[in-house]
């Protein structure tokens, strides 16, 4: 005998209503939404094709140059170059480029959307009060739950993968933008206002530059989360390294899973090193005056 929790209302009926309502939305707007996101899909595909069209050494040089610009450290540049090389060596180049494309586009869009939301949150306690629990839910909700509605709306493919990745990866950049701006010395903000700065001028001349290390930390976390989500998203047709892992499971091929997994690890290290080195360099510049 198991004791049962009493049923206060019929959740199955409620669930049916929700499901049918969403089905109606899909039927009514699915096509329109697909058209709206067509440019995003094109951008994503263009990015993927560009990375695959470039010869491998050009990609390697490009990443290394980017690492140098961000870190000004030969060691980090060499690490990045080596890891890119290894990705090619273990034979997952094409898949890795597809993953990088999806990750870059989703991270860019997450940052593009997340920054203004974070700024808005920092300006109003009420907005913050509403947004924080929403962000909490977004971050604790199992990743797979995001896949369901997006797949229903768009069918399996790159667009639902991209959107699910954005939703999953956006919270850190919002949170840390908000936090970073709120932590800026009140007296400096006051000084800026005292000299007649408009709210926009306060943001661009004081808040944004002083909150930059925190914002960069947020972007770094968002990048990492996008990478982890891109792997999961392969289940709904995002392709890339995650798909190799998935195939490894389906075919019980350890090597396939391992090589793809290593590729993901290498990508994670590359993006993390670049972002962290840049963050540290920014912090040093600010420390001069602390």
């Amino acid at each position: 005998m198991t004791s049962q929790f009493p049923q206060f209302f019929d959740t199955r009926a409620f669930g049916r209503v929700l499901d049918s309502a969403f089905n109606d939305v899909v039927a009514a707007y699915g096509l329109t939404l697909e058209l709206i996101f067509l440019p995003v899909l094109k951008a994503l595909l263009a990015m993927e094709q560009l990375l695959l069209w470039l010869p491998w050494w050009a990609v390697l040089i490009g990443f290394s140059a980017f690492a140098w610009l961000a870190s000004r450290s030969a060691k980090i540049m060499a690490t990045v170059a080596l890891l890119i090389f290894l990705i090619g060596v273990i034979g997952v180049w094409e898949q890795a480029m597809a993953t990088v494309a999806l990750m870059l586009v989703s991270t860019l869009m997450a940052v593009f959307l997340g920054l203004p939301i974070g700024v808005l949150m920092s300006r109003s306690n009420r907005v913050q009060g509403i947004a924080l629990p929403v962000l909490d839910i977004m971050q604790t909700m199992p990743i797979f739950v995001y896949l369901i509605p997006f797949v229903m709306l768009f069918g399996p493919g790159k667009i639902p993968a991209l959107l699910a990745t954005i939703v999953f990866a956006i919270p850190p950049v919002i949170r840390l933008t908000n936090l970073g701006i709120r932590q800026v010395d009140v007296e400096i903000v006051e000084a800026s206002r005292a000299f007649g700065a408009s709210p926009m001028q306060v943001l661009t001349t004081v808040q944004a530059p002083l909150a930059l290390p925190a914002i960069l930390a947020g972007i770094n976390q968002t990048t990492m989360m996008a990478l982890s989500m891109v792997v999961i998203a392969s289940m709904i047709g995002a392709g890339g390294l995650g798909y190799q892992v998935l195939q490894g499971i389906q075919r019980l091929e350890i090597s396939r899973g391992l090589f793809a997994g290593l590729g993901i690890v290498f990508l994670a290290i590359i993006f993390d090193r670049i972002a962290q080195a840049y963050g540290k360099r920014m912090q040093k510049t600010l420390k001069l005056g602390a």
Binding site: I188, A191, P209
Partner: peptide, 14 residues
């Protein structure tokens, strides 16, 4: 018309 000097300087560190 009006400007201000602050106790803890409130300069932009960067």
């Amino acid at each position: 018309k009006i400007s201000m000097v602050f106790q803890k300087f409130a300069l932009l560190p960067h």
